[in-house]
């Protein structure tokens, strides 16, 4: 392959990986945007989604995409319950309390999975795991494309929810100004529950969608996803959930090009450097509107 073909292939892979990162990040973007808490358990909820797909696959022989039907409502309920019984109690405490609470939740999820499934890495084998097709000389991975489509659908649905519905308006109002939202009669506690429920649901969906592609371990995978999700959130910016796609793609392209043309052992660092640069020089993110110097 000529240099330019390889470059295009790499960019395409970067964009597709970006879709994966966006998928992992979108739930966090929503939660962080509205509740302003660093949710350390986000990655663990993604892993929880992965294990639910593993479970449905082992027990019922379901394809991961089919198990979304069950995993999504369960994810939403889990989120609502966690918010109601844990996070809502610390929302008015010093901000680090919420961070700490999510750390505790993260430990509990990871270790509960360890006790139930054992420590062995898990994945679901699907027939299309390594399938590709080619567009204009560029090979596209089937599972990556499916994940990308899932990302677009989810973000479109979320966008519609936030902009076209009453509840979406309430969520946006709460995000902009919680006190103001209270004053115009919005029940912000309920909004927080819904938002966290949606956040966990999105995380679980990401996990289910990604299991044919990736792998899960009970305790080390979650932290990796959490970190990626934060990078995506900051790169994209907070004002707009659609920006998660931009953040994800930027991260994917930076990582893939860095690993392709520079030292691959520093792959994670390229994304983090981009993250720092954006944070310092464009604190509202690539497409965000709110300023982050709170």
């Amino acid at each position: 392959m000529a240099g330019i073909d390889i470059f295009l292939q790499n960019v395409a892979n970067g964009v597709l990986m970006g879709g994966v990162y966006a998928l992992i990040g979108i739930g966090l973007t929503l939660v962080f945007g509205v509740m302003r808490t660093i949710n350390f358990a986000h990655g663990d909820f993604v892993v929880l989604g992965m294990y639910s797909a593993v479970l449905f696959n082992a027990l019922l022989g379901w394809d991961p995409y089919l198990s979304l039907l069950l995993a999504m409502p369960i994810g939403f309920l889990t989120g609502v319950i966690v918010e109601r019984f844990i996070l809502s109690r610390v929302i008015d405490a010093p901000p680090e309390s919420a961070l700490l609470a999510t750390l505790g939740i993260s430990l509990i999820i990871g270790n509960a999975i360890l006790l139930t499934f054992g420590g062995e890495p898990r994945s679901v084998q699907v027939s299309y795991a390594s399938s590709t097709f080619s567009i204009a000389g560029v090979n596209v991975s089937m599972v990556l494309l499916l994940a990308g489509i899932a990302t677009v659908i989810m973000i479109a649905a979320l966008y519609a929810l936030l902009n076209r519905t009453e509840i979406g308006r309430a969520i946006r109002g709460t995000a902009e100004n919680r006190l103001g939202a209270e004053l115009v009669g919005i029940d912000t506690r309920r909004i927080h529950s819904i938002v966290f429920g949606l956040g966990v649901m999105l995380a679980v969906m990401a996990g289910v969608t990604l299991i044919p592609l990736l792998f899960a371990t009970p305790t080390n995978t979650g932290a990796v996803f959490t970190l990626k999700a934060f990078v995506v959130t900051v790169l994209g910016g907070l004002g707009n959930v659609g920006a998660a796609i931009a953040g994800g793609i930027l991260l994917g392209v930076v990582e893939v090009l860095g690993a392709s043309y520079f030292m691959s052992e520093y792959r994670e660092a390229y994304g983090l450097i981009a993250f720092l640069l954006i944070l310092l020089f464009r604190p509202e993110g690539l497409f965000g509107r709110t300023v982050k110097r709170v």
Binding site: I38, V234, F275, L279, L280, R293
Partner: peptide, 11 residues
């Protein structure tokens, strides 16, 4: 400031 500083320290 705030959580953004914390995130930058992780990076």
């Amino acid at each position: 400031r705030g959580p953004y500083f914390s995130l930058s320290t992780i990076a």
